[in-house]
């Protein structure tokens, strides 16, 4: 067996990524896009897993984020007791693919959790995520008890100065945030920043003390996502964030990957047909310097898969 050290690992992953993307007919021409590194990678016109594979390759492969022996924690949106056809939760196929990818990259353990709104056992099951994760070799962690959370301070935040945050996230070597793009009655859209509400014990604090400000404050939590992936394969157009019928869902076939949550949320707003500044938390987070909401200033890689 070839001994893997860090240098060789990075070299191999980079080579693999290059080999995959070089002249690969799977990917359309980069068009106007320049060279990497990319602030944001957007993929469209494929199934969830294919879009993930193309997107993560453009970011240098999962190996750019996950090193051998690391504990990876994935935070999808699993808030509701709804089937995948009503996209209130992240696509289970996508989560399964990420888990598998992380384990292949040498992760010692991949844990998936969400502080659900509906009963967690039901939400985990109905969403299809529990099965996808365990089939891929990952572990579902519960988030239903206060003792599973730890008090942390957010000194740079404006309102959410203190919060109880789930220990799995705080103690993770790698933290991947995977929301689904959906309509939200109060916050208008639920995206990467909003998805981080699911790592906090007291979600009522957000609603009571200025939802947009508290969501933006999560950009200053002591543990930040190392990678964010917005699942926009099937998005919830209305009656969000829970959805009530399949007609609320729209098959859009997009996926956005990156590290800047503000930029990602801004791009998702545009995909939904809104201006980024219409989202209160995007506006606030950009003002607070958490990221860039002006997409024109970003180096975006746009990939359209051949149908």
């Amino acid at each position: 067996m070839i001994e893997m050290n860090r240098r060789r690992f990075i070299g191999t992953t980079a080579a693999t990524a290059a080999a995959i993307s070089w002249n690969n007919p799977l990917f359309a021409a980069a068009g106007a896009d320049g060279d990497g590194p990319w602030d944001l990678v957007a993929v469209r016109n494929g199934e969830s897993v294919a879009m993930y594979e193309a997107g993560i390759a453009a970011l240098g492969g999962i190996g750019a984020f996950v090193k051998k022996g690391q504990h990876v924690v994935i935070k999808p949106n699993i808030a509701w007791d709804q089937p995948p056809e009503i996209p209130a939760n992240t696509n289970p196929d996508l989560i399964g693919a990420i888990v598998r990818d992380c384990l292949q990259a040498g992760a010692s353990k991949v844990t998936v959790f969400d502080h659900t709104c509906h009963k967690w056992q039901r939400a985990y099951k109905t969403s299809g995520i529990a099965k996808a994760v365990t089939d891929a070799g990952g572990v579902m962690a519960p988030a239903n008890l206060e003792q599973q959370y730890r008090a942390v301070e957010l000194p740079k935040a404006k309102t959410l100065k203190k919060a109880l945050i789930h220990k799995e996230m705080l103690d993770a070597d790698v933290f991947i945030n995977v929301p689904v793009l959906k309509h939200h009655g109060g916050a208008k859209l639920s995206l990467t920043m909003k998805n981080l509400m699911g790592v906090v014990w007291d979600r009522r604090f957000f609603h009571k003390n200025g939802l947009d400000q508290c969501i933006a404050d999560m950009c200053f939590a002591p543990r930040q996502p190392d990678l964010n992936i917005i699942d926009a394969y099937r998005i919830l157009r209305k009656n969000g964030p829970q959805g009530r019928a399949e007609e609320d869902g729209e098959i859009t076939k997009y996926q956005m990957l990156g590290t800047d949550m503000v930029a990602l949320d801004a791009s998702a707003a545009k995909l939904f047909g809104m201006k980024p500044e219409e989202l209160g938390y995007v506006k606030i987070a950009a003002q607070m310097g958490a990221g860039k909401a002006d997409l024109s200033k970003l180096n975006i890689k746009r990939i359209t898969l051949k149908a």
């Binding site: 099937r234 007609e247 729209e250 098959i251 076939k253 545009k270 047909g273 359209t304």
Partner: peptide, 14 residues
Amino acid sequence: EENTVRKMEEEFPF
């Protein structure tokens, strides 16, 4: 009973 399906735009929306 069914999801709607969006037709792919010419350009990326962003």
